[in-house]
Design a protein around this nucleic acid. Structure first.
Length: 107
DNA sequence: CGGGTGACTCAAA
DNA sequence: TTTTGAGCCACCC
């Protein structure tokens, strides 16, 4: 039972289904820290260190790829999403509602 | 110990 | 309409 905020973020993120995305706020809320969306991003900053976390499936509330600049490449994040069938344009996910995966609802 | 920063979000001016 | 401010909390110097 990980009480570590980070660990939970990794776990939830890892549970994101293929071709789906979620938001920092959704994860934070699921973890009981709705106001701490920043921590979710901060947690992902470690990029799971040694965990295999698909951080590219986590975006801000508007579906904007705010964290893409933290990825290795400049467009790696977008390409990963597109490779999963998600349409991304101008650093923003199109039809976000169609892909949005809410852990508190579907997990 | 204190201050600055950040992959966020909401609400008010 | 856009711009600010505030809340959150972990990490770094």
């Amino acid at each position: 039972m990980e009480q570590n905020f980070f660990k939970q973020v990794y776990k939830v993120t890892r549970c994101i289904p293929y071709g789906r995305v979620t938001t920092y706020g959704a994860i934070a809320k699921y973890l009981g820290a709705a106001k701490s969306a920043r921590m979710v991003g901060w947690a992902l900053n470690g990029n799971s260190e040694n965990e295999n976390v698909p951080a590219h499936r986590v975006v801000n509330r508007k579906g904007l790829l705010t964290g893409k600049h933290h990825f290795q490449g400049t467009n790696l994040m977008q390409q990963l999403l597109e490779s999963e069938g998600i349409i991304v344009k101008d650093n923003q996910i199109q039809n976000l509602e169609n892909y949005l995966w809410d852990p508190s609802k579907e997990l």
